[in-house]
């Protein structure tokens, strides 16, 4: 991989900077009178998985189209491994693997033929194309689907084919738009593992998704966009998470005693079906609360954060939505 990365550095005298990864600065894009992306800035570093989250219509897909060299931004700059997608699309295309949301595929071709075609489109010779195809089929567990026509694949299988397509030329930057949608639980876990291992190889990975719990497990950082703007960029770092106020859900065999105990100790709570939810300021406080409850003989069966930090941040960032 180190060899690859040194090869990616542009020759001296090029306009590209030596920075790898994705740099987006104040990008804006309108379609007629509709402002799809107003002002988005973000950084995705090599070796990290960066999550792009936001409500529907926040501009995520438009941003990814600009990163994928398909759309020119009205304003602002983009650098991918130091190259500008507008003026150096060829350089960028050689380095990115783009998996669009809701893409189509050539219905009549088999999975293997689709991958051969894409490999040829990346100027690989037939021998190399076959070798890469088999490697990717293996990596994404698509081997038993290899000779099926793309038309008969389920949505989740098509998603996996889309990921395979994005990986065929061993790109250094991955742009994935909703990669987990339609995937069954096992495939999701496999996707997570694939993304983590890609990041470990030093690739830059930008994933847009709605499934926040999934993202929280895989992403190093999250960029939250709403109404075409970056509202927050946060590190999903254990230390930071430990001090964030969050909701915890408590289930007990003695619900009445639990509620009166919370009441007596002036802990604000609200009923959530059979459980109760309390607001706790960080892991330290949560641990103390649990110890106190157990010490007072209340039989606790479950004690867990009710929403992820990412979910909390997302809800906070988008709560002004109508």
């Amino acid at each position: 991989m180190t060899g690859d990365q040194s090869a990616q550095q542009p020759a001296s005298g090029g306009t590209a900077t030596a920075v790898g990864g994705i740099e987006v600065a104040s990008v804006r894009r309108a379609f007629g009178s509709v402002l799809a992306v107003d002002d988005i800035s973000l950084t995705a570093r090599p070796g990290e998985v960066t999550a792009l989250v936001g409500p529907n219509g926040a501009g995520k897909t438009t941003l990814l189209l600009m990163l994928a060299t398909l759309l020119v931004p009205d304003h602002g700059t983009i650098r991918i491994d130091g190259f500008d997608p507008v003026t150096q699309p060829g350089e960028v295309r050689a380095r990115i693997g783009w998996m669009p949301d809701g893409f189509g595929t050539w219905d009549a071709l088999t999975v293997r033929e689709v991958l051969h075609t894409i490999a040829a489109a990346y100027r690989m010779g037939p021998v190399e194309a076959r070798a890469r195809t088999e490697a990717i089929l293996e990596l994404l567990h698509l081997g038993d689907l290899a000779d099926r026509r793309a038309r008969v694949l389920s949505r989740g299988q098509k998603q996996r084919l889309g990921l395979a397509r994005a990986l065929i030329h061993d790109p250094s930057v991955l742009l994935l738009d909703e990669p987990a949608s339609g995937l069954d639980p096992r495939s999701r876990i496999e996707l997570r593992d694939v993304l983590r291992s890609m990041a470990a190889e030093g690739k830059t990975i930008l994933v847009s998704s709605h499934i926040l719990t999934e993202l929280q497990e895989v992403a190093d950082r999250a960029v939250i966009v709403a109404r075409g703007r970056t509202t927050e960029s946060q590190t999903l770092d254990a230390v930071e998470l430990a001090t964030t106020v969050g909701s915890w859900r408590i289930t007990s065999l003695d619900p009445d005693r639990l509620r009166s105990w919370l009441h007596d100790h002036h802990v604000p709570w609200r009923a959530e079906l059979a459980a109760v939810e309390v607001e706790v300021g960080g892991d330290e406080q949560a641990a103390r609360l649990l110890a106190d409850l157990v010490a007072d003989g209340i039989r606790i069966t479950a004690f867990a954060p009710s929403q992820g930090a990412l979910e909390a941040a997302y809800l906070a960032a988008t709560e002004d939505r109508q």
Binding site: A68, T69, L70, R93, A94, I96, T105, A121, H169
Partner: peptide, 13 residues
């Protein structure tokens, strides 16, 4: 319309 053109456009073709 079928969403397959962009797949080719983002390659080195």
């Amino acid at each position: 319309e079928a969403g397959v053109l962009a797949t080719l456009q983002t390659t080195l073709l």
